[in-house]
Design a protein around this nucleic acid. Sequence first.
DNA 1: TTGAAAGCGCTAACAA
DNA 2: TTGTTAGCGCTTTCAA
Lengths: 335, 335
Amino acid sequence: MKKLQLEDLAKKLGYSKTLISMVINGKGNHYGVSKKTQALVLDAVQQYDYRPNKFAKSLRTGKSHFVGLIVSDISNPFYGLIAKTIETLLFNKGYNLMVCSTEEEEDREKQMVEMMLEQQAVDGLIIASALNKPDFYDQDKFARVPMVFIDRVVPMHKGSFIVTDNYGGSITLVRHLLREGNKRIACLAITPLFISTIEDRLHGYREALLHEGVEDPETLIRPVRFEKIDKDVQKHLRDFVKNKNAPDAFYCLNNNIALALLQALHKKEFASLANVRVASFDDLPLFDLLDKKVVTVSQPVEEIGRSASALLLDMITGKRKDHANVVLPTRLVKR
Amino acid sequence: MKKLQLEDLAKKLGYSKTLISMVINGKGNHYGVSKKTQALVLDAVQQYDYRPNKFAKSLRTGKSHFVGLIVSDISNPFYGLIAKTIETLLFNKGYNLMVCSTEEEEDREKQMVEMMLEQQAVDGLIIASALNKPDFYDQDKFARVPMVFIDRVVPMHKGSFIVTDNYGGSITLVRHLLREGNKRIACLAITPLFISTIEDRLHGYREALLHEGVEDPETLIRPVRFEKIDKDVQKHLRDFVKNKNAPDAFYCLNNNIALALLQALHKKEFASLANVRVASFDDLPLFDLLDKKVVTVSQPVEEIGRSASALLLDMITGKRKDHANVVLPTRLVKR
DNA sequence: TTGAAAGCGCTAACAA
DNA sequence: TTGTTAGCGCTTTCAA
């Protein structure tokens, strides 16, 4: 049985496709279709469960009512919550979400963006980009489609951003540690280091330390590779222990590092580090369950999703022409 | 500047749209286009960065190269990991993923399915359904599009399933607790109770207990509402404490309950329960970080995603006509 | 080995 | 208040 389409419905009702289309799209009044006819049409739509073919409609109108979301890892609860927030808001406005995970690989990100934009598959795009140069997104061909960058800032000539105050949050957190009496605060950073969130957090860390006039922060910063978190964290711990210059606190630049650190601290090998203070950027509910009291700054995750979808919708519908740059505040979570 | 389209490219090259289209779609050889011409066309495609309009193509071919994924909560890492696995596999095959979160609401689920299928927006659908009756999915109008049900079984006349062995895993876990000397094992179940995963886990729990001839399991089963997990868990604990009939172990039917329980056990109010054993269906890496040793059965989450996408693709491409029903084994994680 | 032309199902300008 | 008609940009049949 073939699917019912506009023409069939028109025949059944004895009206033209045009009229039916007008009514279905809520333009009945605008075109002066009589109330009676409108009701008749709407009833038939119900009765026969008619739904317009999405692609025909999109082809004709140039609007897909799809929005793309590109993040490094959709299984990361941080992005998961953002995705959920965005999806829910968009769905209620008649938009659907296409999700892509880049695994932090630049080529995949570019490929995904081109696919979505060039094929004109989406009306707008929300991206947590792993790129740190303006050239890619600054291309003219992308100017057609509204984009909102979240979480991470990409240096660009134009472009809207919804990000957290990584710099400020970092300062707050490190100052808190200092105030609590920590003298040597090591920093476990995640690569690639050039991603704006990490850069800003590092910047905040340096600033807070220098401000206090303590030892050169650079010797305390240790990079951890995205693909080898556990291994690298342990390597650094081993190094500290061996050289007998262990810090009294670790500041982890993201959750995954904090988790790896906490895990490692359970090892006999690192028993001497049992009392170090652990701090982390971005909070997790599970930290409440641990005996080790982890200090964090939490990000307004859902707010990022909400702002991004609201902004993008305004851009898509033309309500907003200019770019917006929102920096959301963090909250210190002492424990 | 308008986007380049087939016609423009054809003019530039002095060939017809037909020929270009044939070559781009890899049918050059089939139609006997000379190698030289093919190379020429492909070069131009590169050079001008031409990409066919997705909607025109879909309208014409009837294939969208979109796959839908519907789950109750995309921010739940369990579904997040499934989504990521599916997305990655599909992307490599030229498909894109549309994600929807139902919040466990039946109406939203139905609405989403109808949207995706009726509008012919997706070539296939992967669903973790919250429905427990066959009528909705058994409708003829849905027969056109391949569907793979994951995680939860929906009673249907036909339909493919990729699920975990919830019944067997539950038995294994409870037997393990019994073997370890636990006598009174309370069961914290999540509502709605009719969802197949929960039903099966409950069934396994009952079976394991009855088999050992201990007291009536029904008195030990406590329902926890999806929307009020923390509150309900605490209510039950309070109840047990007040009546001085606390169990020596809690079996949580999912992760979220386990987390709520662990959180609650930190409260002074429940200090008397400090030594209860905690067990949970579905493992979490964070359990490694806790002092309380949580026993679990872990599910092959990525395998669910892999099997589901592979199966769906085979159904979409017609490689597979019949339905498949896969039950994946669980693994006991002692701690 | 290549091209002309029809048509996928819809919307909207224009006509009536 | 309603209908006719021309495309949206592509693929594919059929003809050359």
